[in-house]
Write a protein that binds this DNA or RNA. Structure first.
Lengths: 256, 256
DNA sequence: CGGGAGGTTGACAATCGTCAATCAGAGTGG
DNA sequence: CCACTCTGATTGACGATTGTCAACCTCCCG
């Protein structure tokens, strides 16, 4: 069960979390052909309108998906961490409808899309898990629409911080006390549909309320009061579909 | 090839558009067990947090997916027309992360989720098409994030109208000249993250510019200048992934 | 020690929201 | 055929959240 060896292990773990994969399924994932690549901060994996031929799995690091609108503004539409299959989901779409860029120096594995498709249909359990993964992504996107469309600045940011906290903990790269936020305020602004100036004001507001603390140099966010942050962010982790895991509500209950 | 008989025909057509399905594939779709139901305007198909046991295909009519945020506001996160598999995509998620409501009196077909899953993996061609359909939905959601997050009121609405025009034409329920918009201004407001008052002002603005005309009683939107509307809405239909079809840009080119 | 990226602030502008009144059209019952 | 009612559309006055502009600060690094 503990075959920690392949760079694809995080991907196998992620998919296992979505359903019961047997050892053969897991091994089949690890046996996928891949090509490792080191990508530097701000390097692009895909550009909008490009043709997709490979799927990309993040082994280490963070990435964002973004779109550029006519006025030149950028909107970040998703954020990914280790184990995420950034464009694996797009194994079925031919032309990219958005760009993918690394937030940090990262290790990624590229897998030919045909091999991914084949695996998905050869092994329904794996296929289901992959499909599920893309559906969870879609669910998060819907939540972001609501976040940007119907919440004020403070709530939007608190919500995003809650989401990151839960997501990072699920990925094993954060504790309940806080996490390293690999985004500048410019990037945060493009994530929640605000300006960097307003993000700054809102973030300081959350600090002033003693919900969080930040370390500017390490870019670490410490959560001082999870229950209040959840409340401030109107956060409910149902949309993350984390199933078996300890839910954020459970955590908030414990903290209360 | 023309077996127009089953209520599931629109679904088969839609899936065929995403890839090459052979006659057996198409027949397998039509052979799915289903239960027809008439739903009145504003009836709910699913409520947020409910457990999903059936998948729903719209045969006639329109539906919206929406979320309610803490402050009580509603955000519509998707809009669906005939042929759309509203919760088929959620065959893999157990608990609904949003509500689904009909915009008009409609005919829908309910299919047990297990049968959908089985079909998807028994017939990879169908499974691919279904997966693709969910990925297109996700792509639209991402575009909506950008629309709400980074475009001003006028542009947001123009963009939405362009999307509806293209989508409705693809579904065969609109011409290039216009379409019946089954939404009130309240619902439009909850779609683009504005207030109804501001939607009204923006819509009248587009009319004043002679980009569109509306018939209040039939709720019909006529497009007077497609090219200018596309420009005003910063619209590029790449994200709709319509492949083989005549693209909106082709149309705008023709009109120019 | 200079340069640069990113964070912070203040003053001011503006898009968009709120509130509330009024209007228009469809359906209903007498 | 007309009053009545209800939903949805339209407008105006006013308020406020958020954006814009621009300066300054802080830390890191060569």
């Amino acid at each position: 069960m503990l075959l920690k060896s392949s760079p694809l292990q995080p991907m196998a773990d992620r998919l296992s979390a979505h359903g019961d994969l047997n050892d053969d399924d897991r091994q089949a994932i690890l046996d996928l052909p891949y090509r490792m690549k080191h990508l530097e901060r701000l390097a692009h994996v895909v550009h909008e309108r490009e043709t997709i031929v490979q799927c990309c799995v993040i082994v280490t690091g963070f990435a964002i998906r973004y779109k550029i609108v006519g006025a030149g503004a950028r909107q970040i539409v998703a954020m990914h961490t280790a184990g995420d299959m950034v464009d694996l989901q797009n194994a079925f779409l031919t032309v990219a409808d958005h760009s993918v860029q690394m937030l940090t120096d990262s290790e990624v594995a590229f897998i030919p899309r045909e091999d991914v498709k084949k695996l998905a249909f050869d092994r329904p359990a794996v296929g289901s898990a992959m499909w599920l993964e893309t559906l969870v992504d879609a669910s998060i996107a819907r939540e972001w629409i609501a976040n940007v469309g119907r919440r004020d600045a403070r709530t939007r940011l608190a919500h995003l911080l809650c989401e990151f906290s839960v997501k990072f903990q699920a990925a094993g790269i954060a504790t309940e006390d806080g996490f390293a936020l690999p985004m500048t305020q410019d990037q945060l602004a493009d994530t929640v549909g605000l300006t960097p100036v307003h993000v700054n004001r809102s973030l300081r507001g959350l600090e002033a309320e003693n919900l969080i603390t930040r370390n500017r140099s390490t870019r670490m966010v410490s959560i001082l009061d999870w229950a209040k942050l959840v409340s401030a962010g109107d956060f409910d982790d149902t949309y993350l579909h984390l199933r078996g895991r300890e839910s954020a509500f459970a955590r908030s209950g414990r903290a209360a």
